[in-house]
């Protein structure tokens, strides 16, 4: 539904985006990852038509991005903010109307979300009277009130306590089930690992990775395992695998091992079982963060 083609954006001293392209499919949960200053916010601002790209084009539902698409995009910026002295009910209605809703429609939707998010009593309150977490909730509602087809959330979980983060997460997943496409942007890559189906990693204005999350992670699997046993191995040299590290923790021995070429886990276990009692075995799948670090600094990567 969103096709980004060769977008570049230059500022006076630096380049924020250098020929970045990506495709976002309808109904996808899309992760836009990268460290601070990678160009994520610049790209999001271009999608939101806050700034214009120097080069490249964006297509929304196969049409060139234009002002009429504003009503179809919901945006939660990283820098959260609301009018401090305005009543929350009125404020949400105002923001929804700016997106193009009629007053009656905006009122009904605001009411619906107030009940859904258990904030009925806040209608007449001012933003400055709310706690930070409550403000975040209001801000979230403001960005999705107009039922956008595409929801862009910049650092969605920062500032939420675990309980509210869970509430927001569930709402996001529900919106996705109802058909909304989501773009998460974050530099805390571990926070979206469990949510995203597709990710793109930006670094220093360039796209360095683009693909289905599981496929990426599978391609970065390197047959490493964590094996927990109750007694240490008696032998240190094996033909099937090598031991990367050993730690003694909670009365157990933890071995990080790497399988040799052409070996499989069964063979490894067969050679261990006579020596000790196995408590658990777990494959080590690289996290997005690991993959990112590896991509950015290939030589220092632990799985290279």
């Amino acid at each position: 539904m969103l096709s980004i083609q060769n977008i570049s954006k230059h500022y006076a001293q630096h380049t924020a985006l250098n020929k970045v392209s990506m495709e976002v499919q309808r109904g996808q949960i899309f992760g836009l990852l990268g460290p601070n200053g990678a160009g994520k916010t610049s790209l999001i601002r271009i999608i939101n038509q806050i700034t214009a790209p120097d080069e490249g084009q964006i297509f929304f539902n196969d049409k060139k991005l234009n002002q009429s698409h504003i009503a179809k995009i919901g945006y939660l910026p990283e820098e959260r903010g609301l009018y401090k002295k305005m009543e929350i009910g009125e404020q949400l209605i105002y923001l929804a109307r700016l997106k193009g809703l009629t007053r009656a429609d905006a009122f009904a939707k605001t009411k619906y979300w107030f009940i859904k998010m258990e904030m009925e009593t806040w209608w007449k309150k001012k933003v400055e009277d709310l706690s930070k977490g409550m403000q975040q909730k209001v801000q979230f509602v403001a960005s999705i009130l107009h039922q956008p087809e595409l929801i862009i959330l910049d650092e969605p979980f920062s500032g939420f306590d675990p309980v509210n983060a869970e509430v927001i997460k569930n709402e996001i997943l529900e919106l996705n089930k109802q058909g909304a496409t989501l773009i998460f942007s974050t530099h805390r890559m571990e926070s979206v690992e469990t949510l995203c189906q597709h990710i793109v990693i930006l670094n220093k204005a360039h796209k360095i990775l683009d693909g289905n999350l599981n496929e990426i992670r599978n391609s970065y699997r390197n047959s490493s395992f964590k094996i927990v046993v109750d007694n240490p191995f008696t032998q240190t040299n094996f033909e099937n695998f090598e031991i990367l590290s050993t730690t003694f923790l909670n009365e157990c021995w933890q071995y990080y091992i790497k399988l040799n070429e052409a070996a499989n886990l069964n063979q490894v276990l067969l050679s261990i079982i006579p020596q000790t009692q196995i408590i658990s075995v777990q494959e080590i799948i690289p996290s997005i963060n690991d993959i990112f670090i590896e991509r950015v600094t290939p030589k220092a990567g632990s799985y290279a």
Partner: peptide, 10 residues
């Protein structure tokens, strides 16, 4: 207040 970004996205 940082509301500006919300507004100029509309």
């Amino acid at each position: 207040n940082r509301i500006i970004e919300v507004i100029v996205s509309s």
